[in-house]
């Protein structure tokens, strides 16, 4: 779908590019502060940009579900023998697959701009896994919410309300040591932090399995829960 409406692909890619090109310059000297694991802010920030793109992309996917309901697309599908579960899973996985491609493109651009990936190609593959789980989590959450709420306005308000703090209360822009203590506590419950942490580790340090494995488990758990939530809401609200 995105390929047929090039404007969206463009917008979705330009925004992270602005992040990469502009903000990596704005915050260039940040790395002089103690607590940074890298001496290049771009290196530090690129994983954050990837994760933010996936976060926003997936958190808004519920809008597609609402649109399908409004345009009668959903009813038309529900009147066919397609299993109910595959309709909602198709929505969630479809959106996430687009986002994975976007994440890879940003990775490519960051690499061209001079970001070294400590773990190389296997690290990129592992990033795909992390990003997929993050995307599934938020897409599942968003779709489940869309089914419950139905009219788009509360969903828009709610998604904006939660994505902003999730971003700033994460490690996306600043390393954990520089964040106040309470945010570090909040981080434990923030899937955005877990994904940034792992991807950053893969890019800057290498395979820090003691960081990556717990993060993967948490992200996987959240993804499973949220996809189940969307599926149950869908089963509950439709015949």
């Amino acid at each position: 779908m995105s390929l047929r409406t090039p404007i969206w692909l463009f917008v979705n890619l330009v925004q992270p590019l602005v992040w990469l090109l502009l903000f990596s310059r704005v915050f260039e000297r940040m790395v002089d502060l103690p607590g940074f694991t890298s001496d290049s802010y771009l290196q530090f920030f690129a994983p954050g940009v990837i994760i933010m793109t996936v976060l926003f992309g997936s958190a808004w996917t519920g809008m597609n579900m609402i649109q399908d309901m409004d345009l009668g697309i959903l009813d038309k599908m529900l009147a066919t023998p397609v299993t109910r579960v595959s309709i909602v899973l198709g929505q969630v996985f479809g959106s996430v697959s687009t986002l994975v491609v976007q994440a890879l493109l940003i990775f490519l651009i960051a690499w061209i701009m001079g970001v070294d990936i400590a773990t190389g190609f296997p690290g990129v593959l592992l990033t795909v896994v992390i990003v997929t789980m993050l995307g599934l989590g938020f897409a599942g959450f968003s779709n489940g919410l869309a089914i419950v709420m139905k009219p788009p306005d509360p969903l828009i308000a709610f998604i904006s309300f939660i994505t902003m703090p999730l971003k700033f209360l994460s490690y996306a822009m600043v390393p954990s040591d520089l964040l106040p203590g309470w945010i570090q506590v909040a981080k434990t419950f923030n899937p955005v932090s877990h994904s940034v942490e792992s991807v950053r580790s893969l890019v800057i340090v290498g395979y820090e399995w003691n960081v990556i494995i717990p993060d993967l488990l948490i992200l996987g758990g959240i993804a499973t829960l949220m996809v189940l939530w969307a599926t149950f809401m869908f089963r509950f609200r439709t015949i």
Binding site: L71, G72, I73, L74, D75, K76, M77
Partner: peptide
Amino acid sequence: YAAQEVGID
């Protein structure tokens, strides 16, 4: 089944 709204992509 074809509904009032043409539900196609």
